[in-house]
Write a protein that binds this DNA or RNA. Structure first.
Length: 1142
RNA sequence: AGUCCCAUAGCUCAGUUGGUUAGAGCGCCACACUGAUAAUGUGGAGGUCGGCGGUUCAACUCCGCCUGGGACUACCA
């Protein structure tokens, strides 16, 4: 007892932020929020690891707020919510950052700088902004364990990755393949899809394209009747034609054979192409011209369709190699027509040129049809595509001489030997020089091989490092055969709760359906090494799944004499201490790992495959790797306590990134989802809807924003302004508005409460007034409060934080502050004891409950509010709202009819005030009555119940009801379309019009009979009473307002008595002002002297007591003269008055 | 190019299974309040629900096409 509610002189959420954070640290609350729930059911959350080599931005506040909200909520619901922070530390962005910093390129690594030093630089660099990240995380109030984060470069982490890779390997998911990948000849490296999607990588380029003619070897008879028979196919990369080994048709696409002439040479020919594209290549205007009338050079070239085929009819047909420079292996299998489902007739000819070495799709369909790729043998004996790694046609001198002899037509090839396939790759050429494509096209034109040569603009990816176009090029890579698990992934995906749902079924679902194998290889230095060792010929290999296993293998190798000793002899197998796994003791990265040579089962040396693995594997494996599974914490995961996650959240850009890798790894390793629910949030844009970027200077600094506004309004704004999955147009004015509107109001409400509660020494030690004894308005707000609890609980449960926040906000501002507190102020400073207690208890309950409901979103202010309230009452002794429990709603306290009645009161009040406004009578002037037309009994009951509130709020003396019996009501009929619609069908409109035209007599007849027959468009329709709403819209002669079905009339006559009372109220108001401006305490008693005047005498005499009670005056007297007059200016007269302390 | 998301007042957003006065806040204009006061309240103006078609008695709502913005994926020749 005796503890007071804290009162504040100012309201600064940024300061509250800091102070509350200090207390959290002091009390070690984050840890307690976990330890106090020990043993409770666990709610598993996974943190997606950000990369700490960049500064955190405002969008991170968004993403992390979402994560934090649900972790805090679940903690309040009694769950044990462990959450580990994580850092993504490998990968190209890190490497490039380091290269930039050190001023080197990839080629310098191992030369100018040792791999060792380089990786050390990466290790430091990647954690460059850790401090800022930690700082932001704390300031924004994101509770996550930053002291024991998982770090992907950790030896323990890598060891788990190896374990997982080995599991995949054992189950046949890992294979080495030769595939077409984006490759940058200028940079000498393959590129990941992530790199290809850097801003600005896809650019429009103008390329020379050609429709090539492929001469048939075994044409169908009808194709031979006119000129030479050709297939025609379009390509945007003419240089790849020399590597053509097949043509591809759509099996179900219709094709035609057309007799015509080559536009360049004028030679007669029979062309085969897709029927749909006939007019794209043959001008319809020439359709009627006779073939024989054609003379070379004519603009319009005649043509004649002579036959039609389905794609399948063409499959298997053979054609002559277009450029006979190089003879492919297995020549007999090449140069055939093959089927491909991906062929369309959107552009080109419906026949696709296939160069298996330079197209991913090409390689796929070619492989399926047994078509050999066109490959060379280089001087080292390797099979190579016709283009070398620098982007030029191979030099003969770089090839195997025997191969050149047997397979290359040197005379033909010489002309193109060493030509770069894009000018950009050739250091000696510029854009203005003739491209290889053009050279080839010119030759084709001359050789009657080109049907059409055109410039074509298309979108093409460029290397983000060298700015030069990417080449699709075959490279050796390790793959995860994720397609094998595709169906299972699709099935499991259906069990995941996606927010929004469309991302799961749409973006993610479609992605799964079109899944490709996962290319794991990266030829870089800083990353998780692929733990596969191979003999030189690749006939034997070993996949290593743990350090222990590696050590066993090293021992064998030492025995076999391939290694002198184990380089990590201080490492103790099976000892999982931090020290033992410290990089000083062991480092699984390159270059150390590359020095390990193992021995194969047959006794041959094996070297590690030089590749690193995709960093996305690092992050997708975090459920296991963060626990060092299965080496440690095996049970936690196997028994489901820390896996799978109940909930994760990241940006929508992770759909095919982290969300996918988590899902894929989990499906393949555990045949389980990795997460049961996921929120994919949208972007944070600037207030104009533009992407934030440092370059444009429109990026919002999260630190500055938190410092200025505090995290709570920032979080509240971000969460309530738009659904997380919609993009947020971030406007600081919105944050300011949230601060003022929501937090300001809540703070004011609390301050109001605290002020009077302290005066009255309220501390909830008094007996609780039973709900049944509290006034209607108290039961109303408690009912709303319980409805709110249920709603907010449901929203959080359904991962709808936006709706939760909006509901809380509406309750606080509209219902609690603007209605409950405003209407009940007098109860707090006057009022009978029991009624006062009821008011305090009610308001206390509301505020305290709100502090819990809002805590997940606005953790700082909510905690202060909760503690301030409970410090005085001791009702909940939790150290923090975040250790307390989420409120439970009590259905017995919810009274929907009461809520409706109050709504009615609010509507009637609002309408009355609007009427007052119309005739300019201020609220302080009492009026006699409101008239309400009543057509049904329950309407009157409802209003009666809230009558006092209305009268008080709008300052009228009575509410009277006018029922039908008076005969003065003017009624109107409103059709209920929902009921009447199905009944009337097409006549609906006519019926509605007729109903609205009914006279007063007809309406009464209708009411008495209970139904009415209408003749609409010749059809008789019987309308029942239930099909319409009969309402009274007017009382003739009164000032009337209506809104929906409610109509009210206001009596605006001001009688003498009313005028006097108005003056009295005016006095109360003025005297209160004087009290305040004189600096009196609210409990001070006063003495009032008023100068006599005809304008006021009567009013004062009649209302002396009333005024005195309202302004705490011991005495109010009318005097001839006042000594220290204050002049009060009433609208049409002035009065002198003196107010002093009694 | 495909997939997905978004489009409602000047701005930010609500809008139930289709049902007839399309709402709120901010901003703006006017007013009131001044014992919740670095607050607050009330009223008012402000909409072809992106466009065009369709289904329906009835479309902001369902369907199709288009436009604009965004994201993701992608050398379909």
């Amino acid at each position: 007892m005796g503890k007071k509610f804290a009162e504040y002189s100012n309201f600064n959420l940024s300061d509250i932020n800091k102070e509350v954070m200090r207390q959290w640290d002091e009390k070690d609350l984050f840890h307690k929020s976990i330890t106090t729930r020990e043993g409770a059911p666990s709610f598993v959350f996974f943190e997606g690891p950000p990369s700490a080599n960049g500064m955190p931005g405002i969008h991170h506040v968004m993403a992390r707020s979402i994560k934090d909200i649900f972790c805090r909520y679940k903690t309040m619901k009694g769950f044990h919510v462990k959450r580990k922070a994580g850092w993504d530390t490998h990968g190209l962005p890190v490497e490039l950052g380091v290269e930039k910093e050190l001023g080197i390129t990839k080629e310098d690594i191992g030369k100018k700088i040792s791999v060792d030093d380089y990786n050390a630089a990466c290790r430091t660099n990647v954690m460059k902004f850790t401090k800022e990240w930690t700082d932001l995380t704390r300031k924004m109030g994101y509770w996550v364990d930053l002291e024991n984060p998982y770090i992907t470069y950790d030896n323990k982490y890598i060891e788990t990755l190896w374990y997982l890779l080995k599991e995949l390997y054992k189950n046949g998911y890992l294979y080495k393949g030769y595939t077409i990948q984006p490759y940058s000849p200028a940079a000498g490296t393959g590129l990941s899809s992530h790199e290809l999607n850097q801003p600005g990588c896809y650019r429009d380029v103008k390329d020379t394209t050609v429709v090539a003619q492929f001469k048939m070897l075994d044409p169908k008879p009808e194709m031979t009747q006119f000129g030479t028979p050709f297939f025609i196919a379009w390509t945007t990369t003419p240089w790849t034609l020399s590597s053509n080994t097949a043509l591809c048709v759509g099996p179900n696409i219709p094709y035609v054979a057309v007799q015509s002439y080559n536009p360049y040479t004028g030679q007669p020919a029979t062309y085969v192409l897709a029927k749909d594209l006939l007019n794209a290549h043959f001008n319809p205007k020439a359709a009627d011209l006779a073939l024989e009338d054609y003379k070379p050079g004519d603009k319009l070239i005649p043509f004649k369709v002579i036959a039609e085929y389905k794609g399948t009819d063409l499959v298997g047909m053979r054609y002559e190699q277009l450029m006979k420079w190089i003879t492919p292996e297995n020549e007999s299998q090449a140069f055939r027509v093959i089927p491909g489902d991906y062929v369309t007739t959107e552009d080109g000819t419906g026949i696709v040129h296939i160069a298996p070495t330079f197209g991913a799709d090409d390689a796929k369909v070619a492989k399926a049809a047994g078509i050999p790729p066109l490959q060379l043998v280089d001087k080292y004996g390797n099979l190579r595509p016709s283009v070398d790694l620098t982007g030029k046609f191979y030099l003969l001198s770089d090839l195997d001489p025997d191969y050149v002899k047997t397979h290359i037509n040197v005379g033909e090839y010489k002309k193109y030997e060493g030509r770069f396939v894009k000018n950009a790759y050739d250091p000696k050429l510029t854009d203005k020089d003739e491209t290889l494509d053009i050279s080839i096209c010119m030759d084709m034109k001359a050789n009657n091989q080109a049907f059409k040569i055109e410039k074509h603009v298309h979108n093409y990816p460029h290397c983000w490092r060298t700015d030069k176009p990417v080449l699709y090029y075959p490279l050796d890579s390790w793959f995860i055969c994720s397609t094998k698990a595709r169906n299972r992934m699709i099935e499991l995906n259906k069990t995941i709760k996606w927010k929004p749902e469309s991302t799961g079924s749409g973006r993610f679902g479609k992605w799964l359906e079109n899944l490709n194998d996962w290319n794991l290889s990266r030829s870089r230095y800083w990353g998780t090494p692929l733990p596969i060792w191979r003999t030189e010929e690749g006939t034997e290999e070993k996949c290593i799944g743990s350090i222990t296993e590696l050590f066993e293998e090293i021992e064998k190798s030492v025995k076999a004499g391939f290694m002198k000793e184990n380089p990590w002899k201080n490492f103790k197998v099976g000892v999982y201490t931090k020290e033992n796994y410290d990089p000083k003791n062991i480092d699984l990265h390159r270059p150390y790992i590359d020095s390990i040579i193992l021995v194969s089962d047959s006794g041959k040396p094996m070297k590690r495959e030089a590749d690193l693995i995709d960093v996305w594997f690092d992050s997708g494996a975090m459920p296991f790797a963060q626990m060092h599974y299965p080496f440690e914490n095996k049970d936690l995961i196997d028994k489901g306590e820390y896996y799978p996650a109940n909930f994760i959240a990241e940006g929508v850009d992770q759909t095919r990134g982290w969300f996918f890798t988590l899902h894929a790894i989990s499906t393949m390793i555990k045949d389980s989802v990795a997460f049961k629910a996921v929120i994919s949030n949208g972007l944070v844009l600037d207030k104009n809807g533009n992407k934030m970027s440092k370059r444009l200077g429109n990026a919002v600094d999260p630190f500055g924003a938190i410092e200025k506004y505090g995290s709570d309004p920032l979080r509240w704004y971000m969460i309530t302004n738009a659904s997380p999955w919609d993009n947020l147009k971030f406007d600081t004015e919105g944050v300011e508005e949230v601060r003022r509107k929501f937090f300001g109001t809540l703070y004011n409400t609390y301050s109001f409460f605290a002020l009077y509660a302290n005066v009255d020494k309220f501390d909830y030690s008094q007996t609780e007034i039973p709900m049944s004894k509290r006034p209607e308005i108290d039961r109303w707000i408690i009912s709303l409060l319980n409805s709110l609890i249920k709603e907010v609980d449901d929203c959080y449960n359904e991962y709808e934080p936006t709706k939760a926040g909006r509901a809380i906000s509406e309750f606080v501002t509209d219902n609690l502050s603007n209605w409950y507190v405003r209407l009940n102020r007098k109860r707090f400073w006057g009022g009978k004891e029991e009624d006062k207690q009821a008011a305090y208890q009610t308001l206390y309950t509301c505020l305290e409950t709100v502090s819990r409901l809002m805590a997940p979103i606005a953790p700082f202010f909510a905690d202060q509010l909760f503690l301030d309230l409970n410090a005085a009452t001791g009702k909940d002794k939790s150290e923090s709202v975040h250790l307390a429990y989420f409120p439970k709603f009590d259905a017995s306290l919810i009274d929907k009819r009461l809520e409706e009645r109050m709504q009615l009161a609010q509507d009637i009040s609002s309408m009355t005030l609007a009427l007052r406004k119309k005739v300019n009578i201020k609220v302080r002037q009492p009026l006699k009555q409101i008239m309400v037309p009543i057509l049904a009994e329950h309407e009157q009951e409802n209003i009666e119940a809230v009558k006092d509130l209305i009268m008080n709020e709008v300052n009228v003396k009575e509410i009277n009801f006018v029922d039908d019996s008076t005969g003065i009501l003017v009624k109107k009929i409103k059709p209920d379309f929902k009921k009447l619609g199905p009944k009337c069908g097409k006549s609906m409109k006519a019926v509605a019009a007729l109903l609205q035209e009914l006279t007063q007599e007809e309406i009464s007849k209708f009411e008495k009979a209970g139904q009415y027959t209408i003749n609409a468009n010749g059809a008789e329709i019987t309308v029942d009473k239930e099909d319409v709403e009969i309402l009274s819209e007017d009382i003739p002669g009164w000032l009337v307002a209506n809104n929906g079905s409610i109509t009210i009339a206001l009596d605006v006559t001001i009688t003498d008595d009313l005028r006097k009372e108005g003056i009295a109220r005016e006095f109360v108001n003025r005297i209160q002002n004087i009290r305040k401006s004189s600096g009196f305490e609210i409990t001070d008693k006063i003495c009032v002297k008023i100068e006599k005047s005809d304008n006021v005498n009567a009013a004062i005499n009649d209302y002396k007591e009333y005024i005195a009670s309202q302004v705490l005056a011991n005495e109010i007297s009318l005097v001839d003269n006042v000594v220290n007059p204050t002049e009060l200016d009433f609208d049409d007269f002035k009065v002198n008055i003196e107010v002093e302390k009694a």
